[in-house]
Amino acid sequence: MTATAAVWLVILVALIAANLPFINERIFIIGPRRSPKPLGWRLLELVVLWGVTLGVGFALEARIGQIQPQGWEFYAALGCLFLTLAFPGFVWRYLRRRHP
């Protein structure tokens, strides 16, 4: 896998993972169904899936070559990107108008 393909794969995984908490009612995708699922569970899932995405990125980076050391700025930027990618799911869940 080339470096460009790995980057696009991580972005695709991040896009899917960031929206998963907002499009389903199950806890961590496979748990019991909670209807409606509280916002706290959704935020916890978002943090856990952020870690999963980070792990996928590190695994792909290790497969391509040496893992580069990262400072706090990298994690802050990745967190902001993850929240930005989660915005469509948040809008779909909480901000769209529901017609009776």
Rank of each mutant, 00 (worst) to 15 (best):
G40N: 11
T4I: 10
A5Q: 12
H99L: 15
V56D: 07
P100T: 09
Q66P: 11
A14S: 12
A18P: 02
L60C: 06
F87H: 07
G55K: 09
I29Q: 11
G55I: 10
V48K: 09
I23P: 03
R98F: 14
T84W: 12
N19I: 00
A18Y: 02
R93M: 05
M1N: 10
W50F: 15
R26A: 08
T84C: 11
A3S: 14
G89C: 00
P36D: 03
A6P: 05
N19W: 07
G71S: 14
L95D: 00
W50I: 01
I27V: 15
P21K: 06
P32Y: 13
Q70K: 13
L20F: 09
N19V: 04
C80Y: 12
K37D: 01
W41E: 10
V13S: 04
T53R: 05
L43M: 10
R42C: 04
A77S: 14
G57E: 03
R96C: 08
W8F: 13
R42T: 03
K37S: 04
P88C: 05
A86P: 05
I30W: 11
L39K: 09
R42E: 01
C80V: 15
R96N: 14
M1I: 12
V7N: 03
W72K: 10
G65I: 08
M1W: 09
A5F: 08
F90N: 01
L85D: 04
V48Y: 10
T4M: 09
G40H: 10
V7C: 04
I67V: 15
E61Q: 15
L54P: 00
R26G: 02
G31L: 12
P69W: 11
F74N: 12
I11T: 02
G79C: 12
R42I: 05
P36W: 03
F58D: 05
A62S: 09
R96W: 13
N19Q: 08
L49K: 01
V13M: 07
T53F: 02
F58N: 04
V7A: 00
L20D: 04
P100F: 09
P69D: 13
A17N: 10
V10W: 00
L43V: 05
R42V: 00
F74V: 14
W92P: 00
